[in-house]
């Protein structure tokens, strides 16, 4: 038989031809070139600024001149422990915990439905329904909630029409979480946080639940477990990485937010607002930096605990 073509074609030549051959022969070089830009971005812009922040938190401010004293000191961290500042931290952290737990409870049935039952069109509707709120402006949504929760708002109106005003009043009369109206209470703050961050809980949960094979639930039931036992011993442990991932979002986003508590809730400060106030008007960058470290430390501790509890064993 006659073979008109050579078995091995000659190199294409030119810059791209030579570069292609070179990269094919040096896969490590390819990886290096591919990762260099994002690593530079991550390393310098992201981690670098975080590190600069960390360094700032060990400086202090001269109380008379208002100038930053660039000497290593723990004085600023000491200031964090002032009752007023401790109050801010406690308020923010407890709100974040409540929002996270509520989000997990509300998200689970939705995520479970989407992972185990929704198919085709319904799955698309689920994704659309969860993502749609994320596409509209954050501020618009929060001001909309301000109107919904206000004393003259639609929620009050609905309660009145249902002759349940007494119930709303009773809820608002609860100390700490209550207030004059929902829009100026911690309850309102938590509700809006819950609304805004819920998609960040639903999506990782749904992804985790989707990866639990259906026959494991059947196997559990076959071995005598009632639905509640199957949930506790099989479904929850296997979905836990997703729950943890979601809670990292809701928890850290709540810890850092400074707009929602400013618009909805009592006028008391959250960590984000404190950071905003200290670095802007007061010019106290070290204290603002020290405040920023708090969520980072809390998240680090949370992840360490989760790992110790075996939350990532099923990964």
């Amino acid at each position: 038989m006659n073979h008109p073509e050579a078995v091995i074609t000659p190199g294409r030549g030119g810059l791209f031809g030579v570069a292609s051959d070179y990269i094919w022969r040096n896969p490590r070089m390819f990886l290096f070139l591919m990762l260099l830009p994002p690593l530079l971005w991550l390393g310098i812009v992201y981690l670098g600024s975080l590190f600069a922040l960390l360094v700032q938190s060990f400086f202090s401010i001269d109380e008379f001149s208002g100038m930053v004293v660039r000497e290593f000191t723990l004085k600023t961290y000491g200031e964090l422990l002032h009752p007023a500042n401790l109050d801010i931290i406690l308020r923010t952290v407890s709100t974040a915990i409540v929002v996270t737990i509520l989000a997990a409870i509300v998200a689970f049935p939705i995520a479970y439905y989407a992972a185990r039952y929704a198919r085709g069109k319904w799955k698309a509707i689920f994704y659309l329904g969860v993502m749609l709120p994320l596409w509209s402006s954050y501020l618009v949504k929060i001001y909309a909630w301000k109107l919904i929760l206000a004393k003259e708002g639609i929620l009050n109106w609905v309660f009145a029409k249902l002759h349940l005003t007494w119930l709303l009043d009773a809820i608002l009369a609860i100390p700490i979480i209550g207030g004059n109206s929902l829009s100026v209470s911690y309850l309102g703050t938590c509700l809006v946080f819950l609304y805004v961050w819920l998609p960040f809980m639903i999506l990782p949960m749904q992804a985790a639940l989707e990866r639990v094979p259906g026959n494991l639930l059947e196997a559990s039931s076959d071995l005598g477990a009632q639905p509640g036992q199957t949930f506790r011993h099989v479904l929850l442990p296997l979905a836990l990485p997703g729950v943890i991932a979601g809670s990292i979002f809701t928890f850290s986003l709540t810890l850092g937010d400074y707009i929602i508590p400013q618009i909805i809730g009592s006028s008391r400060l959250f960590i984000g607002q404190a950071v905003y106030a200290h670095q802007g008007i007061a010019g106290n960058i070290p204290l603002a930096a020290a405040f920023t470290i708090v969520p980072i430390v809390i998240m680090g501790f949370y992840l360490w605990m989760a790992k110790r509890q075996g939350a990532f064993d099923a990964l």
Partner: peptide
């Protein structure tokens, strides 16, 4: 329901609990 039957199954792909 399956959990009230004194019958056990060996599943096709074993269905062992990975955790």
């Amino acid at each position: 329901p399956p959990y009230r039957r004194h019958v056990n199954t060996v599943f096709q792909d074993y269905a062992l609990f990975p955790h």
